[in-house]
Design a protein around this nucleic acid. Structure first.
Lengths: 113, 113
DNA sequence: GTAACGTGCAACCAAATGGTTGCACGAATC
DNA sequence: GATTCGTGCAACCATTTGGTTGCACGTTAC
């Protein structure tokens, strides 16, 4: 039995919504590799600090990154667990597809051409 | 070598964006199980026909469903290939995480406590 | 042929999104 | 103590999103 945590539909919405932006995907990649402060992140994008701050907030609400205070900085690190959850959700779709194929196979098997 | 089709960032945006809505995820699930016309789909949601039509258009733009004419109807069927692509994209994130762990392990290995 | 059905599309609207600037405030530096 | 740095937050703006209604048009059924 695959033990997927029960996610609210709203939370699923937040996860996919958060992943639907190039800058945010990049932030997730970067902070999975190595944690970084918000200003370190912001330095690399062609937009204001506040804009990057908002992107981080979106990612945090989706639990794709976490933010821990360290002095005057806020250190961001990616959360691989939520990535894995999203992957599992998509896996369920594939499962639906596979069981359809199975049913189709069964149907064809009991109706010899 | 894993042969993932090269997706533009825009296309990736569309895929995740399309998945970030409960009604649309439900339509994908349903049409993976069995194809349906737009009006058949629309009958089951508490919104106008036009609204469902728009959701289908969003899914089609993301290549998560396809729409084939059949008389006066448009038959919608889910596209498992795009689901699989999205899953692979998330798999790359996990890969990034795993290689970070590997590097950390290597670092700890060559610095005996 | 006429009526009903399934769809496409435009116009419209409220709310959310993604960006901006400006300001406040605690933490670090000098 | 004054300055600078990193952050949080509010106000504002343009665009997109997700919904609506209304209408046109081809297809199917009477």
């Amino acid at each position: 039995m695959e033990h997927t945590a029960a996610l609210s539909e709203e939370q699923v919405n937040r996860i996919f919504r958060a992943l639907a932006d190039e800058t945010r995907r990049d932030i997730v990649r970067r902070t999975l590799t190595a944690e970084a402060s918000i200003s370190e992140l912001a330095a690399d994008y062609d937009m204001s600090f506040a804009a990057v701050q908002k992107h981080v907030a979106v990612l945090e609400a989706a639990d794709l990154v976490a933010r821990t205070p360290k002095g005057r900085e806020r250190i961001i690190h990616g959360n691989p667990e939520t990535i894995r959850l999203a992957q599992q959700l998509l896996g369920h779709f594939e499962q639906i597809w596979r069981s359809r194929i199975d049913r189709l196979d069964a149907f064809l098997a009991e109706r010899p051409e």
